[in-house]
Design a protein around this nucleic acid. Structure first.
Length: 266
DNA sequence: GTGTCATGCGTAT
DNA sequence: TACGCCTGACACG
C-alpha cells in the first residue's frame, strides 16, 4: 500500500533490521538474478527514502533503487520465513530475518548520479522537511493551470502523495479538488501543507492511512477505528460525509478517481 | 478457474 | 487520453 508514508516506514524498519549486516541475496522469481548476485554477500550500510523511491546502499558500493508502483510489497519475517511467492523478485536474509520484495515497478542497481537525477525530479517530501518547503509547494501549485486535485498527484509538486492522500488532504484542508491550482491562496496552501506533513507522519507511524479524527465517528481513539471508518472521502461515493452528512461525490481527475464532500470542500 | 480491481507511472497516440 | 507493466486478493461461477 505504497504512498510516501509506507516508503519512509520501510526505510526505517529495513535499516533497523538489516543495517550494518551482511546479507545473502537471491531472486526467487529469477528476474533479478544478476542484481541479486551483485549485492549477495554485501553489507547494507544505509537506506534512504525520497517520496515513493527507496535507495539501499551496500558496501562494497552498490545502490539498489526500488519503486513499489501500485502493487509492490515488502514482507519481512523473523528467521527463514515461509517459502516466497512466485512473484518474489528479490529476497535477502542476514541469518536472523528474511525480506521478500514482490510486485515492484522498479528494482534496479544504479549509481550515485542516477540517485541525484531521480531526486531532482521530485518536489518537497513532507517526511524529509526543508525550511523552504512551503514556499516551494505554493509556488509550484500556483504555476500550474490544472485542478488542484490533479496537481497533487504530480510528484514534482509534492513527493509521496498518492490517490488516497490527495483526496483526504483536500478534505482536511477544506479545498474543492476542482479548484484551479493557480488560484490557491497562500493561507490555503499553508493549511494544506500543514495537514500533509501531519498526516504522512501519522501514516508512517501507524503503518496505514488513517485520517479520520475519532471524534467525528464517535470513537475513543484512532486505533479503535474500524476498517470502514478510517477515511473521510476515499472510495465513499454516495455515502454521507462524516462531518456534515452531505453525500460524497466523485469524478475522474488526473486519470484516477477522486472523491470529495461538496459542502465541506469549497 | 477466470475476471476485476488496486494507495503508480512512463510512454505512445 | 489510453495502454502497458509490476502482483495478489477477492468475488464469482
Amino acid at each position: 500500500m505504497p504512498e510516501g508514508h509506507t516508503i519512509h516506514r520501510a526505510a526505517r524498519l529495513h535499516k533497523q533490521r538489516f543495517g550494518d549486516r551482511r546479507i545473502k541475496a537471491w531472486s526467487p522469481q529469477g528476474r533479478f538474478d544478476d542484481g541479486a548476485a551483485r549485492i549477495d554477500g554485501a553489507e547494507l550500510v544505509d537506506v534512504r527514502a525520497a517520496g515513493k523511491h527507496l535507495f539501499y546502499e551496500f558496501e562494497p558500493l552498490e545502490t539498489l533503487h526500488v519503486h513499489l508502483g501500485l502493487f509492490g510489497k515488502f514482507r519481512v519475517f523473523g528467521g527463514v520465513g515461509p517459502p516466497p511467492t512466485d512473484g518474489t523478485r528479490l529476497a535477502w536474509s542476514d541469518g536472523e530475518s528474511t525480506l521478500y520484495l514482490a510486485g515492484a515497478t522498479i528494482v534496479e542497481l544504479i549509481d550515485r548520479d542516477d540517485e541525484v537525477r531521480i531526486r531532482r525530479r521530485l518536489g518537497p517530501d513532507p517526511l524529509a522537511r526543508q525550511s523552504d518547503d512551503l514556499e516551494r509547494i505554493v509556488s509550484a501549485l500556483q504555476r500550474r493551470n490544472i485542478p488542484i486535485g490533479a496537481a497533487l498527484l504530480d510528484q514534482k509538486v509534492v513527493a509521496g502523495i498518492g490517490n488516497v492522500y490527495r483526496a483526504e488532504l483536500l478534505f482536511l484542508a477544506g479545498i474543492d479538488p476542482r479548484r484551479p491550482s493557480n488560484e490557491l491562496v497562500p493561507a490555503d496552501g499553508a493549511l494544506l501543507w500543514e495537514e500533509t506533513v501531519r498526516q504522512l507522519r501519522l501514516g508512517q507511524r501507524a503503518g496505514r492511512i488513517i485520517t479520520v479524527d475519532p471524534k467525528d465517528v464517535g470513537a475513543k481513539s484512532r486505533k479503535s477505528l474500524d476498517r470502514g471508518e478510517r477515511l473521510y472521502t476515499y472510495q465513499r461515493d454516495g455515502e454521507p460525509c462524516r462531518r456534515c452528512e452531505t453525500l460524497i461525490v466523485s469524478t475522474e481527475m488526473g486519470g484516477r478517481s477522486i472523491w470529495w464532500c461538496p459542502s465541506c470542500q469549497q
